[in-house]
Design a protein around this nucleic acid. Structure first.
Length: 419
RNA sequence: GGAGGAUUCGCAUAGCGGCCGAGUGCGCACGCUUGGAAAGCGUGUAUAGGGCAACCUAUCGAGGGUUCAAAUCCCUCAUCCUCCGCCA
């Protein structure tokens, strides 16, 4: 949720931001009108209530005829208060509904445009040239006994898979390496709930434009999270954090669930796009003044991970039209996938500024008062996509796959062999 | 799943339907005292909204209701604790 005061004082900035996202800018003016009416209603209600409070006190001390007369007045006033209260509540809800529809105000540095208008910030490493015909991860997964998509489909439907043998071991190694690096960087490791209630899901902004990608268990009214960003952000819901403790950083390891509705034709082969996967996610609560710096740090930790996996990649500055509603800027890292002859997204880091914290009511307290914190998130490693990148980039002519040096201590070998 | 009990200011507690936004203790902050510290004494110690401001309004787990008036009465829900059943 954006700040109502900011909206009142800078409506043109918010309009421009909405335009940059290709979202409805008329909400801005609707919200402003609604807010004006809301404040009028608040004044009316509060004036009436103040009168009622005074009258009530008189009733308490009056007696006899005087009391009867006062009670008559109070009764009439009570009706008016009730009406004014209802009107106020209605306008407050209406205003909030409108303001909630506004996305976070874009960082002026974010490139303006649609999905394809991203800006490439840098390339790291060069795509490998093969002196044999490279196999894709599905084929390699089969040869190594690492990935079983056929049985996945048999048991759980499309976009499902088993990680077996080397595949399972590779996940453990990736997670262990990720958590070890996160610990070194000062993160608190967390294993969060993946089943969350509506306030947590709503507060993190996943019930808006992303709602159709979320699994909802109707009978119990709980949601399966699509990322541990949700339980990590909601961890401090309704709390006031001491300013001197910021930034507070968590590394959450969890399964992630995505319906992938509306992606029917996309990435049907392999494990690039699946309904369930495991991920280590970085999450940071920091001082708003520190958010841009913190965002850079998250990106650096993501790059460090890719570097350690010895995978060529590029970093993109995601265009305004492709940002989530909570993010004011987003950097994606795209790994080189040889058999697709393309860079594909493997990690993503977003600066949500105070947008998410305002919804979740997470604040910090310092000498100046109590204000919303900034929240940021970034993928340290999303397992299946990283497995794809490793298998494809480090494959040998015979189908075996070299293990990056950083992972060898966790696997006690330097190559995945054929089964 | 069944039966009881609880939920008040950072923590612990008090609280007859009007004098309770709320007392007390602890904690914390500032001041006094002291050679320094402790103790002692004094003062202060929530959040949000509206208003230029004085100030006003709201909040005693959440939401409804009764009443001129609700922390206090009624209903629903949530969470926690204890006991029973089931269980990885």
């Amino acid at each position: 949720m954006i700040d109502l005061k900011f909206l009142r004082e800078n409506p043109e900035v918010v309009r421009a931001s909405q335009r940059g996202r290709f979202e409805d800018e008329t909400i801005v003016d609707k919200a402003l009108v609604s807010d004006e009416n809301r404040r009028i209603a608040i004044n009316e209600f509060e004036a009436l209530r103040a009168e009622q409070n005074t009258l009530s006190k008189l009733v308490a001390s009056a007696k006899g005829d005087e009391k009867t007369a006062l009670l008559e007045n109070s009764k009439a006033l009570a009706m008016k208060v009730k009406e004014a209260d209802a009107k106020r509540t209605e306008l407050e809800d209406a205003t909030k509904n409108l303001v909630m529809q506004l996305s976070n105000v874009l960082d002026p540095a974010a490139p303006i445009g649609k999905e394809e208008d991203f800006v490439v910030l840098e390339h790291v490493g060069a795509p490998r040239t093969f002196d044999f015909v490279a196999r894709d991860h599905v084929e390699l997964g089969k040869l190594l006994g690492a990935i079983d998509t056929e049985r996945g489909a048999k048991v759980a439907g499309s976009r499902s898979y088993y990680l077996t043998g080397s595949g399972a071991m590779l996940e453990f190694a990736l997670v262990n390496y990720a958590i070890a690096s996160a610990l070194k960087a000062g993160f608190t490791p967390v294993i969060p709930p993946v089943l969350v209630n509506p306030p947590a899901m709503e507060g993190t902004g996943f019930l808006g434009q992303a709602a159709e990608n979320v699994y909802h268990l109707e009978k119990d009214d709980v949601y399966l999270v699509g990322t541990s960003e949700v339980p990590l952000a909601a961890f401090h819901m309704d709390e006031v954090l001491p300013a001197e403790k910021l930034p507070i950083r968590y590394a959450g390891y969890s399964s992630c669930f995505r319906r992938e509705a509306g992606t029917y034709g996309k990435d049907t082969r392999g494990i690039i796009r699946v309904h369930q996967f495991d991920k280590v996610e970085m999450f940071s609560f920091c001082h708003p003044d520190q958010a841009i710096e913190e965002h850079k740090r998250l990106l650096q930790w993501e790059k460090d991970f890719l570097n350690a996996m010895e995978i060529p990649y590029r970093v993109i500055d995601v265009a305004s039209g492709d940002l989530g509603s909570s993010a004011n800027r987003k950097f994606d890292i795209e790994a080189w996938i040889p058999t697709q002859n393309a860079y594909r997204e493997v990690t993503s880091t977003s600066n949500c500024t105070e947008f998410q914290a305002r919804r979740l009511n997470i604040r910090y307290k310092d000498a100046d008062g109590t204000k919303a914190v900034a929240t940021l998130n970034g993928t340290l490693v999303a397992i299946p996509r990283m497995i794809v990148a490793i298998l494809e980039n480090h494959q040998n002519a015979d189908g075996t796959v070299n293990i990056p040096a950083a992972l060898r201590p966790f696997l006690n070998k330097d190559r995945f062999e054929l089964v």
